[in-house]
Amino acid sequence: MERSVSRGNYIINSIKYALLEIVAGILVIMWLVPLYAMILGGLKSNLEAASTPILLPPSKPSLDAYAFAWFGYATIPGLEPTMLRYLLVAIPSVLLSVIIGTMTAYFFFILSEKHEILSNSLFSIIALATFLPIETVTFPLIELETSLNVYNTYIGLIFAMLIFYVPTSALLMSIFIPVVPKYLIESARMDGAGDWTILWRVVFPLIFPGFLSTLIFVFLQIWNEFFIPLILTNTPNMLMLPVAARFYTAAYALIYNRSFAAGVISSLIPLIIFIFLGRYFIRGLAALGGGAKGV
């Protein structure tokens, strides 16, 4: 009797696992189809890209469209300089946002031990910036950066990114930090360690998966940010990749293969990050689940 029950459970679990694998496979295919179509479209001639089914491989693959999108031609800007410029903005913006956000989350975590209502109230106000549409602060942001003489500069773009993405980082890190056992923090305090030492020597190593996951998430958000570079730059030598790629596609939409190529090029950095760091992002999400239970 027990054998038949265990065998029945084994069959049921096997069926569930197979169904989950099928669903996962379908989702992966759905995610890869647009990328597959863009890559193929960039390898086709414009006529072939416009007249053949989007998933049909090119008859004569060519990298001309990718070369055009990368290097540009005449008055049409290439994506090479805009990508390099945007890396100069995105990398420090992400690092500073997540580091400052981590310190902010830890500050409110410590404050909540003594003044829980005050901590929750102040943090809720700061977290509102996470849900605030950037379009609603267009003119104040432009006026602020103009008054600080940082409009249309790298510093101005980084400053604007910090305004919106430090709260996002703090909100995410505030979910990871409560996972740390409180006795470790108390033990460090008894040994004479200050909050700065406790944060980076005790707390940070334990929440590193969450930190890395937040880092990846914020990077993807900033990399796809369109509105901030659009309103805070106004010269060709400050054109950033998100604006350049979309402007390129909008201005030359009839040149299908070049538009596909521009889309692929602008997606390269996020794709590379997910290929090499995707497993760490998943670990962070797993830690997020644990943090949510600990809140």
Score class of each variant (00 low, 15 high):
Ser45Leu: 08
Ala24Ser: 13
Ile110Ala: 09
Ala18Tyr: 08
Glu21Trp: 13
Val89Cys: 04
Leu230Ser: 01
Leu111Arg: 02
Met161Ile: 09
Pro61Asp: 03
Ile265Gly: 04
Asn152Phe: 04
Met83Phe: 13
Leu132Val: 02
Phe247Glu: 14
Val180Arg: 13
Asp195Leu: 07
Leu232Ala: 11
Lys182Arg: 14
Ile117Asp: 04
Tyr36Trp: 13
Leu79Cys: 07
Arg85Glu: 02
Met1Trp: 04
Ala105Ser: 15
Glu186Pro: 04
Lys60Ser: 13
Met103Ser: 14
Leu47Thr: 13
Thr233Tyr: 02
Glu186Ser: 11
Ile155Leu: 14
Asn237Pro: 00
Ser62Met: 11
Lys182Pro: 00
Ser6Tyr: 09
Ser174Met: 07
Gly284Ser: 05
Ser169Lys: 03
Arg246Tyr: 11
Val203Lys: 12
Thr75Asn: 14
Ile207Leu: 05
Arg258Thr: 15
Arg246Thr: 08
Gly78Lys: 13
Ile177Phe: 12
Leu148Lys: 08
Thr130Glu: 00
Ile185Trp: 01
Tyr248Asn: 02
Ile269Trp: 03
Arg189Ile: 09
Leu148Asp: 08
Leu88Cys: 00
Gly8Arg: 14
Ser112Ile: 03
Gly291His: 10
Ser124Tyr: 09
Pro77Arg: 12
Thr130Asp: 01
Thr136Asn: 06
Arg279Asp: 09
Leu157His: 02
Ser6His: 14
Leu171Arg: 07
Met190Tyr: 00
Val180Thr: 08
Asn234Cys: 01
Ala18Lys: 10
Ile216Asp: 07
Ile11Lys: 02
Leu157Pro: 15
Gly78Phe: 11
Tyr106Ala: 07
Leu87Glu: 10
Tyr17Asn: 12
Thr233His: 07
Leu96Glu: 14
Glu21Val: 15
Phe71Arg: 11
Leu87Tyr: 08
Pro270Asp: 02
Val23Asn: 00
Glu225Arg: 11
Ser4Glu: 12
Ser267Ala: 15
Leu43Val: 11
Arg283Ser: 09
Arg3Pro: 00
Pro229Trp: 01
Asn257Pro: 09
Glu80Ser: 08
Met83Lys: 12
Ala170Ser: 08
Ile158Val: 15
Phe219Trp: 07
Met238Val: 02
Lys44Arg: 09
Leu87Phe: 12
Asn224Trp: 01
Gly72Thr: 10
Val23His: 04
Pro167Glu: 11
Pro178Val: 13
Ala188Met: 00
Val150Thr: 14
Ala245Arg: 15
Thr82Ser: 14
Asn237Thr: 09
Ala37Val: 05
Ile11Trp: 00
Pro236Lys: 04
Ile99Gly: 11
Val166Ile: 15
Gly290Met: 08
Glu116Ser: 15
Met190Cys: 06
His115Ser: 10
Arg85Trp: 03
Leu27Gln: 06
Ala250Lys: 03
Lys44Phe: 07
Thr130Gln: 00
Ala170Asp: 12
Phe159Met: 13
Thr104Arg: 02
Tyr73Gly: 01
Lys293Asp: 01
Ser14Asp: 08
Lys293His: 09
Leu35Asn: 04
Tyr106Phe: 15
Trp31Met: 15
Ala188Cys: 03
Leu55Ala: 10
Gly192Arg: 08
Gly101Thr: 11
